[in-house]
Write a protein that binds this DNA or RNA. Structure first.
Lengths: 340, 340
DNA sequence: CTGAAAGCGCTTACAG
DNA sequence: CTGAAAGCGCTTACAG
């Protein structure tokens, strides 16, 4: 591979001059600049990333730590991050923790979890990335970032109480409130809820939004609520217990998978979603439009969360002084389909 | 960050010795080794990746170029690659070309396509990755790898005729043959096909597998075939034209999305998949189990393709001399559900 | 406007 | 078994 030195020789100038030109320093004559740039072009010279990184302690690369790439939310977020990096000439190095694959859905209770995260951060410190984005698999309070970390870090899809760390989430409360309001506007007064697991942050926030909507509309909470395990089967079971003769005319499921379980139950009973009872979901996963009738649900702005995270980290890197830590919430969108 | 030099000072040895120990060279006394390792541990020293890479021209990192991360197949493959890298202490740097997002499904006819790929390779050359894996979005012959590339490269989910480049694909022919055979064993003699786009390699290979199965079972090709655009709508349209009074008792759709379109059509006609007519899909996408009745389909071994690709590239890096270029095909698995 | 020189943190012959 | 020294390819004060 061709080096700076060779370019310098070809042009009969010093390597300092070539370096200055390549880095856009202004103190160079037009003439030499032109000549050098020409040679650079025709030789296809590319700076050695390692050498530059070693000397300049700036690598234009960002480390992305991912709880689990296969989680449905991960791809959209990463796609957003990368599209922003693309425009700003940053590279992404991925560290996929593979937590769901390794330890199932309860991984964050696992002892090894915090170690893995710290190891990943360590690794990135060694690679000298300019910043780190932590893409979580679900909302929670992350508290295992090393206190004295000297690399900017932002958390995506979760949050933290540790100082100096920004986060980007979507707005569960607003979304659940909007969906509930929509149900109410459609004439429903007794709205059952099939929530996620108890104490889960998404569950709690969505419940808050649900109750807020009821309150705003002067409707009493019918207390038809069942916690479930986020999957199809648990949605089915919850529906069975909850819906029998509750008198509810609508069910708000806290994700699409559980909504599919509700469909299963209704099907069994010969009931039709959207006709006999309104069903709403959350996530807008691909499968939600393959349900029959198609599922009304909440779209999570994954791409935008990614873009925003990327924006925050680059801001913090480029203007560390006037950067303010920020905990932002991106709004969700309701996808109206046939089930409501 | 702590450096080699500081470790050396703390232990009153030379940096050469520390380096030797850290790199597992054998020519060191047990005593100094122990002492140094202890200090390394307690200081939390990590080698500077840039310095090491610059000097040793080996970075333990692999560049992954992806046609489009959001394509359904990408995540599984990358997950497989990363799980293998994890075990072998390799890092992955991602370059997401975002072709589908940028240019729609016809992107590979786009002029800018080859440029983007070459630019990505160039970029990786500059970063000095030890190898490159190209994760394609669908099977095709890739011919834009620079001839004189001195970095090992393997192609995942597509192939090439260029020398020196290995590839890993799944076996479309075997899979389509197995699915057709299954249909035949179930008593079907007139099996319609809703294929993908004409001339697409997956389409051609699956057709080959289909015909092979017919031949093996002495069944004449009923020539009930319709090319379609891989999506739900086109599947619906194809079904409408093809199935009306064809007398076919089964339809083999070349992907799950089109199978969903067939479901739409049958639904409209009051027909039930798996009862009135057998329907088979391909891909085993998540939505296929949310269809009612659930869809019998072909599972693509994405994870295994990723693992195999990772294995090939590391082999080629570590034993460049006795490495043989290899075009491998991983077998698919039939997922039996209710529609057949 | 231009260039000689130091140095980033390592690895690698080589000498002892 | 141990270490002094060169050098990987750049950037960055600094001098002229």
């Amino acid at each position: 591979m061709i080096t700076l030195k060779e370019i310098a020789e070809k042009c009969s100038v010093s390597i300092t001059t070539v370096s200055n030109i390549l880095n856009g320093k202004s103190n160079v004559s037009e003439k030499t600049k032109e000549r050098v740039l020409e040679v650079v072009k025709e030789t296809g010279y590319r700076p050695n990333y390692m050498a530059r990184g070693l000397r300049a302690s700036r690598t234009n690369s960002i480390g992305i730590i991912i709880d689990d790439l296969t989680e449905f939310s991960s791809t959209g977020i990463i796609d957003g991050i990368m599209s922003y990096f693309d425009e700003h000439k940053y590279k992404a190095i991925l560290e996929n923790l593979r937590f769901y694959s390794k330890w199932g859905t309860k991984w964050y209770h696992n002892k090894g979890y915090e170690d893995s995260v710290q190891q990943a951060i360590d690794e990135f410190a060694s690679i000298k990335v300019d910043g780190i984005i932590y893409v979580a698999g679900h909302a929670r309070c992350i508290s295992c970032i090393p206190e004295n970390l000297d690399i900017p870090l932002v958390i995506s899809y979760a949050f933290t109480e540790q100082p100096g760390i920004s986060s980007v989430e979507f707005d569960d409360v607003q979304a659940a409130c909007a969906m509930t309001t929509k149900l109410i506007k459609n004439g429903h007064k007794k709205i059952a809820v099939i929530a996620g697991t108890e104490k889960n942050i998404h569950t709690m926030r969505r419940l808050e939004g649900y109750q807020k909507a009821l309150k705003e509309n002067g409707i009493e909470d019918c207390r038809c609520l069942k916690y479930a395990g986020w999957d199809r089967e648990s949605g089915y079971l919850a529906a069975k217990e909850l819906l029998a003769d509750s008198g509810c005319t609508a069910v708000f499921c806290f994700n699409d998978l559980m909504a599919a379980g509700v469909y299963d139950y209704l099907d069994e009973k010969g009931l039709v979603p959207g006709k006999d009872i309104a069903v709403a979901g959350f996530d807008n996963r691909t499968m939600s439009q393959f349900l029959k009738p198609t599922l009304t649900t909440v779209e999570i702005p994954l791409f935008d969360i990614g873009v925003k995270s990327a924006e925050l980290i680059l801001n913090q890197i480029n203007s560390p002084d006037d950067f303010k830590v920020q905990h932002s919430f991106v709004e969700c969108k309701i996808i109206e389909r046939e089930s409501v």
